[in-house]
């Protein structure tokens, strides 16, 4: 059974200084799952995935990825796509150079890539339809294209697990749809995917598994089982209206803002 688990979190606690982010988290994520973590700002979602990535040292508990214990570094082949806001867009790298970074841990000791590395990077750029920008500076691309550059970097590392921090924020509806569909196709090829998002309607329509998080796991399951007013109220501390039409689930703020209030 052990080899079926991609991530196992036991009694995990994290603090920033004296500020406790969350305490005693237990979570098991099976291999091959495509899960979305949703929750309000400041709920600890990013801290949770950073502890999976080995970027943050927890105050207590253990995180295992693919059977290996994560301490200060991840033990498995993980592709990570950070929030676009965290990227320094003026940094002098071309699309090819940024994507090649995903190959660095597989390259030899010399600083230049070999034919295989170059081929893998070109293949990934072609799959994501951004091969025409290979020599462009990353800043000259649109938001959706920039998102695909970091997805390409993650795929160039040939990951078993993909972790994405808000991949659908700041992009238009069409791009959002394209990204989620592309991720679904990757998931069907066996890659385990975990993403953080604020877009409940998009994840309800595309993702098979949802984790509601607010300083702890409120609920996890299929969208139709999790996106219920009581669970969402507990997650967001706000009233959320859930509308269902066949397999379609739509969520909205229950109380529209009134200028007379």
């Amino acid at each position: 059974m052990q080899e079926q688990t991609m991530i196992e979190i036991k009694d995990l606690s994290c603090k920033y200084g004296n500020n406790e982010i969350f305490k005693g988290i237990n979570l098991k994520i099976e291999k091959g799952i495509f899960a979305g973590i949703v929750g309000p700002n400041g709920s600890g979602k990013t801290t949770l995935i950073k502890s999976m990535l080995g970027v943050i040292k927890p105050t207590n508990g253990k995180v295992s990825v693919n059977g290996g214990l994560v301490k200060n570094r991840p033990s498995s082949n993980i592709g990570y796509i950070p929030q676009l806001e965290a990227i320094e867009w003026d940094f002098p790298v071309t699309v090819e150079q940024a994507v090649m970074m995903g190959r660095y841990n597989k390259m030899g000791i010399f600083p230049w890539p070999d034919k295989k590395d170059k081929r893998i990077v070109r293949d990934v750029l072609e799959r994501l339809s951004i091969i025409q920008y290979i020599n462009h500076h990353i800043k000259t691309l649109s938001g959706g294209e920039q998102q695909r550059v970091f997805l390409a970097r993650a795929l160039a590392s040939e990951p078993e697990l993909l972790i994405l921090d808000e991949p659908t924020s700041g992009v238009d509806l069409k791009t959002q749809h394209d990204i989620l569909h592309f991720l679904l196709s990757l998931n069907k090829k066996g890659i385990t995917i975990i993403l953080i998002t604020h877009d409940l309607n998009a994840v309800a329509a595309h993702l098979p598994w949802i984790i509601c998080f607010n300083k702890g796991i409120i609920a996890e399951g299929r969208p139709e089982d999790v996106f219920k007013p009581n669970i969402l109220k507990k997650t967001y501390n706000a009233d959320v209206t859930v509308l269902r039409s066949g397999s379609l689930i739509l969520m909205a703020n229950a109380k529209p803002l009134n200028t007379d209030d």
Binding site: V55, Y80, F91
Partner: peptide, 13 residues
Amino acid sequence: AFDPESATVYGIR
């Protein structure tokens, strides 16, 4: 220099 956080994830010390 470009992305220290991701560099950690991709195995760079």
